[in-house]
Computed example of a mutant assay.
Amino acid sequence: MRVAVIGGGNGALAVACEWGLAGHEVTMAAPTDYPGSLPDVAAAGGITGTGQINGFAPVTVTGDDFGAALEGADLVQVVGAAFATEDYGRSCGPHLRPGMTVVVNPGSCLGALAFARAAGLPAHQDEITIAELSTLPYATRVIEDATVHVFHLLRGGLFVAALGQTRTEAVREMLAEVWPAVTTARSVWQTALQNGNPVIHPAVTLLNAALIERTGGDFLFYEEGVTQATGRVMAAVDAERIAIAEALGVQILSEPAAGVAQGYMLEDNYDTGYSTAPGFLGIKAQDSLDNRYLTEDVGVSMLFFRDVAQAVGVPTPMMDTIIHLTSVVMDTDYAADPPRTLASLGLAGQSVEKLRAL
């Protein structure tokens, strides 16, 4: 299979490495504005994986030439932060061909729909399959030039859904060759709302803000950053997320239950479940508050969750509080111009019944 990986960050390198090691022909491309580690991968001729993915995988880097990367691709994996999805869609759109399968990995906030709209594709069409995963299949970091370390590879709790829903099983079968843990979701609402990052990262970051600023993140994010008080904040956010999912007719796992299913955690609770989790041991805090744990997980994902909640009549007092506090801490009014909303996805004003049918 020919696999094109779009992106140059931690997750993109892990995806490209694992699929290359599985024997697939892998190409990579990324915009010149954020090439990530692609120059290093090009110089090395591929990617070295360590940890739970081991070996050297040859990879062809085409830089910002998306046409060359996508030429002949069977599977296109779009791997990056939520705020990059539309840019990737615009770059890939002219080069997508009938029969291709695109997987936004992870989908975050209906990333499949955001990508499709940016690429100029309707949500419901049969020629090009657009799907999304609920989360990246790894905990991973680039540790040196063209070398990616995978701390943890998910054993479960990984869901996929395709727009229009009819192609979901076909996509699952394609991905299961490398990721056997992937299972079908009921719809892209399930994959979108199963994203647990807005539950975990903002609470731990905000309640440890002084420590992050004072030490430059020189502490263990989960082992030292999560306490009973932190856990109570996470639980309150999670209750609101689960209520949004129920209003849309889908069931999602609580964040600790997902962590146990994925193999990160041994305990299904919001404090020691994280602070003693084998999959989170040794992970340091970010070196600055200006980090995706706030800029993406609040500035994109949590704002999107709240927008959906308002549309389906679910109150979100804890999310409201975290959004406001993050805006004050970062001296940025994130709610003033959210990048991902129902309106930006063409869903504003739709009934709950129509939203459920997505």
Score class of each variant (00 low, 15 high):
104 V>N: 13
263 G>H: 03
259 G>R: 00
124 H>R: 13
244 I>M: 08
334 Y>A: 04
26 V>P: 04
206 L>V: 12
19 W>Q: 07
207 L>M: 14
339 P>M: 02
57 A>P: 03
61 V>M: 07
134 S>T: 07
72 G>H: 06
324 H>R: 10
118 A>F: 14
195 N>I: 07
249 G>F: 05
272 T>Y: 05
42 A>S: 13
63 G>K: 05
145 D>Q: 09
262 Q>C: 12
53 I>A: 08
141 R>Q: 13
81 A>E: 05
233 V>D: 00
137 P>T: 06
252 I>S: 06
205 T>I: 11
103 V>S: 13
115 F>S: 13
119 A>W: 13
226 V>H: 00
189 W>R: 11
106 P>K: 02
80 G>A: 14
19 W>Y: 15
192 A>S: 15
327 S>L: 07
124 H>P: 00
153 L>K: 12
340 R>L: 08
292 R>A: 10
99 G>Q: 10
166 T>V: 14
186 R>N: 07
159 F>I: 06
96 L>P: 11
7 G>K: 10
346 G>W: 02
260 V>P: 04
197 N>I: 12
74 D>K: 09
39 P>H: 12
193 L>M: 11
330 M>C: 02
44 A>P: 01
252 I>K: 00
155 R>A: 15
2 R>W: 09
323 I>E: 06
74 D>P: 00
95 H>P: 02
203 A>K: 06
145 D>P: 05
142 V>H: 02
217 G>A: 05
57 A>K: 03
31 P>Y: 11
329 V>W: 06
337 D>Q: 10
137 P>H: 13
102 V>D: 09
34 Y>N: 14
161 A>F: 14
126 D>C: 09
180 P>F: 12
207 L>P: 01
183 T>W: 08
41 V>Y: 13
208 N>S: 07
235 A>P: 00
202 P>K: 06
44 A>D: 06
159 F>L: 15
162 A>E: 02
125 Q>W: 15
189 W>K: 08
351 S>T: 13
310 Q>Y: 03
186 R>K: 14
18 E>I: 09
20 G>W: 15
4 A>W: 07
251 Q>A: 13
103 V>P: 03
127 E>L: 14
288 S>L: 00
228 Q>T: 09
349 G>D: 04
292 R>H: 07
70 L>R: 12
95 H>V: 05
150 V>H: 10
321 T>S: 08
86 E>G: 10
317 P>Y: 04
11 G>Y: 11
354 K>V: 02
20 G>A: 14
156 G>D: 09
233 V>T: 03
172 R>W: 10
199 V>D: 06
348 A>V: 01
279 G>Q: 05
350 Q>V: 00
267 E>T: 08
186 R>W: 10
128 I>D: 08
358 L>M: 08
334 Y>V: 03
320 D>K: 00
35 P>F: 12
213 E>W: 01
107 G>H: 04
8 G>K: 07
212 I>G: 01
307 D>H: 04
